[in-house]
Computed example of a mutant assay.
Amino acid sequence: MVSLSPGTLLIADPFLKDPNFARTVVLLCEHQDTKGSFGFVLNKLFDQQLNDLVPEILINTIPVFYGGPVQIDTIHFIHQQPELIKGGFEIIKGVYWGGEFDTVVSLINNGKLDLTKIKFFIGYSGWSSGQLENEMNDKSWITSTGDISIIFEEEEQNIWKQALKNLGSNFAIMANFPIDPLLN
């Protein structure tokens, strides 16, 4: 099991029933024993595009992901372009959380941003101090080291299964479990 720290992937147990997190993968961006944890669901597509939420964006094909149930009136992003987007926090080597949003809008509108290297979220996933540890003890999550190919996978429906498969054959078999074990 990977320790909880920025860059850890939280892979939902196949039988986790919470509708916010069933069959999801969360990228942990921050974890502090005394303050709690923060991250984004990587594989839950939101029902609006970025330009629907940010009218200044001129491109209408940029997806937004449901980052989690906390503050769903906020937009966040992760990216792989620190040379263009200043002010981000490096989560794992080559992956940054946040930065200057006005710069992002300008780069998008001018066609200067590689849209395969940035991901937008509405809301986030948050845990108070000790809450995530309790969920880990309850076996709600399987942990993995952050992997750029998982984090920026364009086919969101593949992320959960691929994250399990990357852990080896013992976990790969779980990717085909039904949500309800009674259907097994």
Score class of each variant (00 low, 15 high):
Glu135Cys: 00
Ser129Gly: 12
Ile148Lys: 15
Glu83Phe: 09
Asn184Gln: 15
Ser125Asp: 05
Glu133Trp: 01
Phe77Ser: 01
Tyr66Ile: 07
Asp52Gln: 12
Asn137Met: 14
Ile118Tyr: 05
Asn184Glu: 15
Ala163Thr: 06
Ser37Met: 03
His79Asp: 09
Leu53Gly: 06
Thr74Asn: 15
Met174Pro: 10
Phe46Asn: 11
Val54Ser: 06
Ile11Phe: 02
Leu45Arg: 15
Gly7Cys: 03
His31Phe: 03
Glu153Cys: 09
Asp114His: 10
Val41Gln: 02
Gln48Cys: 11
Asn109Ala: 13
Leu132Lys: 01
Tyr124Glu: 05
Leu10Asp: 01
Asp73Arg: 10
Asn137Pro: 04
Gly98Pro: 00
Gly87Pro: 01
Lys165Ser: 14
Lys117Phe: 07
Asn176Gln: 15
Asp18Ala: 09
Glu135Phe: 00
Asn51Lys: 14
Gly36Tyr: 02
Thr143Gln: 09
Phe121Val: 02
Ser37Arg: 00
Asp147Trp: 08
Lys119Met: 05
Ile148Gly: 10
Trp160Ile: 07
Phe121Tyr: 05
Gly7Leu: 01
Gly111Thr: 13
Lys17Asn: 14
Pro6His: 08
Phe152Ser: 06
Leu113Ala: 10
Gly87Asp: 05
Tyr96Asn: 05
Val26Glu: 03
Ser140Cys: 15
Ile85Phe: 06
Asn170Asp: 14
Ile92Ala: 11
Leu167Thr: 09
Leu58Gly: 11
Arg23Tyr: 07
Ile118Gln: 05
Leu132Ser: 04
Trp160Ala: 03
Asp180Phe: 11
Asp114Met: 08
Asn170Cys: 10
Pro82Glu: 08
Ala172Asn: 08
Asp73Gln: 13
Leu58Thr: 13
Ile108Cys: 04
Ile142Gln: 05
Ala163Lys: 02
Asn51Trp: 12
Ile91Asn: 03
Leu42His: 04
Asp47Phe: 10
Lys35Glu: 15
Thr103Glu: 13
Ile122Lys: 04
Ile85Gly: 02
Gly111Cys: 11
Leu16Arg: 00
Gln71Thr: 08
Gly7Met: 02
Leu107Tyr: 06
Leu10Arg: 00
Tyr124Ile: 05
Ile11Leu: 04
Glu155Cys: 10
Leu84Glu: 11
Leu164Trp: 00
Gly88Phe: 01
